[in-house]
Design a protein around this nucleic acid. Structure first.
Lengths: 189, 189
DNA sequence: GCCATTTGCCTAAAGGCATTAGGCTGCTGC
DNA sequence: GCAGCAGCCTAATGCCTTTAGGCAAATGGC
């Protein structure tokens, strides 16, 4: 009987692709087994559970996205950096909706601590170096930045903007402009 | 055999409570049947499917939340209105996490059109009347506002802020300050 | 008050996913 | 060449969804 050559990493990657195709919450051990033309039970040698599989996909996506963001930030600062950073997230969410959804999976504390989550925060914090914010405001600004980007993409992917003009494409650059303006004019506390 | 007195509305409300207790994606026809001490199949006279149940909970939550937001906005304007509006969303998300999650359910176009979704947009738009924005910018500002609030709550509920100081409680008022500042200083296009 | 009809809940059954236990076999290294 | 491991399989259980068909409780016209 020919072997399929499964392993945890291949399953994780295939799971990410599957997520992009059918949606992250449709990712199932069964569906993944079908994709490899293998019986369901066979996957359990490589992933502990359905939850484990999803967690691996989430960590994979978080890492991949952090990598792209870091690349986009290299050599840029100020509004350029801001726009590039936001653009990477948006492109990722559009090109890989399932993986993007995976990044929102709630992770338990230790897993989260070991994830690329912190890298995302650090990257956002790096953008602030191009603006003149007092140190104690950095955390708030990072959270705002993350909220806007994540909120926008989440609403856009959810179709919240698709039933009113103008198209989301028109709003996005204005949102980036607004964020830039806000960071240049951060209110005193 | 005594009858349980089920009907679509009671099921929807109980489903909303269940969602708050166990999480929206744990809401299941079976769990709801157990809650009423009734056999699973019995629910199918009142809801068409699991999907239908979830949609009804989402519509219920959307409506309830719009009602609270409208109440909070009454008689307020400017930053007061902004803070009240954001506060309502945040309180709702914290008090009713399952229902809040339900509001993010992706609805098909017709259902979405018939939902309270539009009321949410109108309320956000009403807040802008207290600021001096050119009309064509309103849509962008509404989307930004929605993105920030939704994004923040989504990240906060997801625990994204819970592993770094300071606590989300500290950031929230600063975010509202920042939004207010941004709306007063909206960048020219 | 009586019965016909509707309505509400039930039993039964099929199909899908998750997960565990235990078995067979192709591969690897000595 | 073979011992042992690793990788995939069969089998079985339990839970969830959904449909079909049945019986009994409520309802309303008489």
């Amino acid at each position: 009987m020919a072997r399929a050559g499964l392993n945890t990493e291949r399953l994780t990657r295939a799971g990410a692709e599957l997520a992009d195709e059918v949606g992250f919450d449709q990712v199932t051990v069964s569906a993944l087994a079908r994709r490899f033309d293998v019986k369901v039970a066979s996957l359990y040698s490589h992933v502990a559970s359905s939850q484990d599989l999803k967690t691996r996909i989430a960590l994979f996506a978080l890492d991949e996205l952090a990598g792209r963001a870091a690349e986009a930030l290299a050599g840029r600062s100020g509004k350029q950096a801001l726009a590039a950073f936001a653009g990477v997230y948006r492109d990722y969410a559009r090109d890989h909706p399932g993986r993007y959804a995976a990044t929102q999976l709630r992770l338990d504390p230790e897993t989260a601590a070991a994830s690329a989550g912190r890298r995302h925060t650090e990257l956002a914090r790096a953008i602030l170096r191009g603006y003149d914010l007092a140190e104690p405001e950095h955390t708030h600004a990072v959270r705002l930045l993350g909220s806007v980007v994540h909120g926008y993409l989440s609403l856009e992917l959810g179709g919240a903007f698709s039933h009113s003009a103008p198209a989301p494409e028109q709003s996005w650059p204005r949102i980036v402009d607004a964020l830039d303006a806000l960071l240049r004019n951060w209110p005193a506390s």
